[in-house]
Design a protein around this nucleic acid. Structure first.
Lengths: 185, 185
DNA sequence: TCCAGTATTATGACTAGGTCCTAATAGTAA
DNA sequence: TTACTATTAGGACCTAGTCATAATACTGGA
């Protein structure tokens, strides 16, 4: 027996969510109803046509591509910077940063925040990490805000040593010492 | 004076690359030529129509959404894994991994490859990095392939120490020692 | 200056995947 | 049987094209 209207619309909703690229014609085939019925259903459910659906999926992607473009950007948001002296950045831990199982932030994100802050604080064309010694003091969870403070503690001709301490609220969660190579080449 | 065909086509290419959502009509307006000219240009350059461009951007996004779902995934591709003993992964350095200025891979990607490999090698529910001591031996460049080898060198009740060495060809580019906390909680 | 060849524009027929509106038919429940 | 909802059908119109043909404009060289 064919599905009742309500059930069909429910399934339609799911089908489109899963495969937004599907046309009305294909949906009509799938549910064994006419194209017009599919269209009426879409109207009632407020679902736009394929091309608009595709466009909005594309739009999301494009926004993210733009965000990713300045690849030299610091991981997190820099809120204070004194070149060759100190810098502070914040990173809000979101779903993409955590293990899905336990909602604990993956270590490399904290590392990335600290490491890129070290690159940013150095007033030279080129800054590369040579060595680093780091400690993860406690695990960071979803929705926590990590504040990383970098402080230049030593500089000579080619090398700069930077110390980074990251806190959530008042609690130290990460600390590291980074030895950086730099040049104005 | 209006642009010559060659110059226009060059700029057209760029314009579409930057804003793939633009229609022929808008492009015709922008370059002050007829729609037909824009279409001829597209044909010659092998550029598909807006809706196809939008669809391919959307398709990329969709693929990535599916890929991104297993957020617990290892950075790089695991090609060998013996639980609690050793593991090997490869990471091909692509545009998104490097500084745009000098095409040198950003340190945190090498760290992420190594760190996530340490997580993967541990045969427990939970594995978190506690300490790490790392050295970047030489900078890695665009299109190079980094092979990371992880080896468990010590284990007790709650802690596991893993050593990771990453090579490009025969050359050591990164090495680190990771102290991991784990539990079957 | 004219001529050839290239570049540009115009026009018309056709397409996919729709919207919007009207109208006919089918199914169901009181 | 009647009333109402659900479904289907049809036609006009839309956008953003493709493909083919033809006319016009521009430009460099003999």
């Amino acid at each position: 027996m064919k599905l009742k209207k309500k059930d069909r619309q429910e399934q339609l909703n799911q089908a489109i969510e899963q495969t937004p690229f599907i046309t009305d014609e294909e949906l009509a085939e799938q549910f064994q109803v006419s194209i017009q019925t599919i269209r009426l259903d879409r109207m009632e459910l407020g679902i736009p046509e394929v091309r608009k659906r595709i466009e909005s999926v594309a739009q999301e992607n494009w926004d993210e591509t733009l965000k990713a473009l300045p690849a030299d950007e610091v991981i997190g948001e820099v809120i204070d910077l004194e070149l060759d002296q100190s810098a502070i950045s914040i990173l809000d831990i979101q779903a993409e940063h955590v293990f899905s199982r336990n909602h604990i932030a993956r270590g490399h994100h904290l590392f990335a925040q600290a490491n890129s802050l070290c690159v940013a604080v150095i007033d030279d064309e080129l800054a590369l990490t040579v060595n680093a010694s780091i400690q993860f003091k406690r695990s960071v969870r979803l929705n926590e805000r990590v504040v990383a403070k970098a402080k230049v503690i030593h500089t000579d001709k080619k090398r700069t040593t930077v110390e980074v301490n990251s806190h959530v609220e008042k609690e130290l969660v990460f600390s590291g010492t980074f030895e950086m190579y730099r040049s104005t080449d």
